[in-house]
Nucleic acid binder design. Structure first.
Lengths: 348, 348
DNA sequence: TTGTAGGCGTTATCAG
DNA sequence: CTGATAACGCCTACAA
């Protein structure tokens, strides 16, 4: 097996110095046409490719970006990831992924590992545990070390950095309003425990819509389900004990499961009960009936996050140039209407 | 912002040589207790961490593994990825992902990029296009360069390397047999165009079961759908034109969509028609009725792939030791029974 | 036109 | 016990 060839090999074979080879390969006018051609031919023949690691060491730039997400088997994150990956590749960057599994410790460990030279910057969504603990020292340290960071979706105001989010509150408010506009009076909310930033904001939007419309909030219509808990009795009981004609869910799985319970109880969808879920994933699309969903446009989110990050990484090269202030980009959501609702036409 | 600290900085501050610092940090007995403690204290204070890149350059080992998959927004690949990531992390490796988007060119470009020193080995599933073209030179080259490769799921016999697969043929045969055992006589197959290796094998298993049982194969009951094509008329027409009492689908989406068409035609599931799909993902689990599915245990597959790869990467360190022959691991599948079938109890 | 030397950060060898 | 030196592969300012 022919091991990777280096400048040194070429130099030795051709009986020139390493720097001559290096320059010749870059087509430097310093080198005679003759030598250039000789070197280039040889390099092509042996399929020479510069060693990324050596270049990284020299340039102190790896062209790798680190992505840390709570869970990879999750449609939304996966979609964002695709956006990141595509954009990064287009700009010549590779992506190193670590999964925090919603654990604070894994998040910290992974970041420290990558921060020691493996990457030029991070894109991440906070783990549930990190949000719960409200401990962001590992993120603040990045700033001190001059490693750019972009947070997306699960962000915090405690850390100064670029951010990409959707306006969760406005989205929930819009969805709730659309349900109200379609004549629904008693709208339930299926949400998670509230330490998740996004859930809290979605709840706020839901409340706001109800208040503004004059329907008012009935706290009995809000059910808080454990985050990853697979059990139906809680929600089934909720269906028995409360009266409602529409449901807003903070995620897709809650919506699918709620819809299924309704079907088992022989409720007509969307006539008796309408459903809207956050996250427009495969489940919404292929549900029967199709689930009306708030699309978060994860791919776009990833694209923007990667752009913010790479721009900043590359700005840092222009030494001591004033860096632009941190930005927060808000990705617009859209409501994908399917059979689980019968909405009046939107006003805009 | 305090930039990353290096051995050199420490050496200068403490007025000792770089090599002394290096040794002291490794607790080398060569160094006096005094110096060791002084150095270690200083290092801790300034949170010194060795630079990964420099170490990679020196060791010619990056502790990164490259994963190339056709699509990240795909439950099965995502599951395999999780298995890889977890196992790799446990052994101190990071994962660099590239997505081929089912394109041959992207596969080649990504691999070449990473192969220049960024990774110690590859884990990949072939893109559709690569399988179609049957061009595997980029993979063969890895062998020549001494870069270990593990193929999973979408493999080829053209390349000598470690492989991890499920026995697609046996799985399809088993599923078909179970349908037969439950009394079904006319079993349809929904598959893709046949250049996908796995589809071909699944079809073979389906045929084998029908032949062995004496039912025989009716080619009219096999429908070939475009791989990523989102249209229902083809399959709807199939439902109209053919009589069948069970359906085996080579993937989850086909199954969900077929099931939905059946529901729209008011067919009783599983009484009139039973359904089984490959890939036990979210859609199968949350479908209504739940879809009986062949679980490929992607996470286990990823774990095994990562183990094969890392073992081989690390074996290569033990210079000139005879490398073990290439292995092909077969991950057993299992049938997850849900409401879309009414199977007789399995014989084993 | 070509080559030398130094450096990126680390480690290993060997000399002091 | 400590330090100088060379090496990993590449680049570049400066010398020849």
């Amino acid at each position: 097996m022919k091991r990777k060839i280096t400048l040194k090999h070429i130099a030795r074979e051709l009986d020139v110095s390493i720097s001559t080879v290096s320059k010749a390969l870059k087509n430097s006018p310093e080198i005679s046409k003759d030598t250039r051609e000789k070197v280039q031919a040889f390099a092509r023949l042996y399929n020479y490719k510069p060693n990324n690691i050596a270049i990284s060491l020299k340039n102190k730039r790896t062209r790798n970006i680190g992505v840390i997400i709570p869970d990879i088997v999750h449609h939304f994150f996966t979609t964002v990831f695709r956006g990141i990956e595509h954009y990064a590749n287009d700009r010549g960057y590779n992506v190193i992924v670590c999964v925090s599994d919603e654990s604070f410790d894994k998040e910290v460990v992974n970041m420290e590992l990558l921060a020691n030279g493996s990457i030029d910057g991070f894109i991440m969504a906070l783990s549930a545990e990190t949000q719960q603990k409200q401990d962001f020292n590992h993120l603040k340290e990045l700033g001190e070390q001059g490693i750019p960071l972009v947070l997306f979706d699960r962000v915090t105001s405690e850390v100064a950095c670029d951010k990409v989010i959707i306006d969760d509150q406005a989205a929930a408010q819009m969805a709730t309003q659309r349900l109200i506009d379609s004549g629904k009076k008693r709208i339930a909310l299926f949400t998670t425990e509230s330490f998740l930033n996004v859930s809290a904001k979605r709840e706020a939007g839901y409340r706001r819509a109800l208040e503004k419309s004059g329907l008012g909030v009935d706290d009995n219509l809000i059910i808080r389900l454990p985050h990853q808990f697979e059990e139906e009795t809680l929600s089934a009981a909720f269906f028995e004990s409360q009266e409602f004609d529409a449901v807003l869910c903070v995620n897709e799985i809650f919506a699918i499961r709620a819809m299924r319970i309704a079907q088992e109880l022989q409720r007509d969808i969307p006539g008796e009960i309408s459903f809207i879920g956050f996250t427009d994933g495969l489940l919404s699309k292929y549900a029967n009936p199709g689930l009306t969903a708030i699309a978060q446009h994860g791919e776009e989110m990833g694209r923007v996050a990667a752009e913010l990050l790479i721009d900043r990484v590359e700005e840092e090269d222009d030494l001591e140039q004033e860096l632009p202030p941190y930005r927060t980009c808000i990705i617009p959501v859209s409501l994908i209407e399917r059979e689980s609702t019968q909405l009046a036409p939107s006003k805009n």
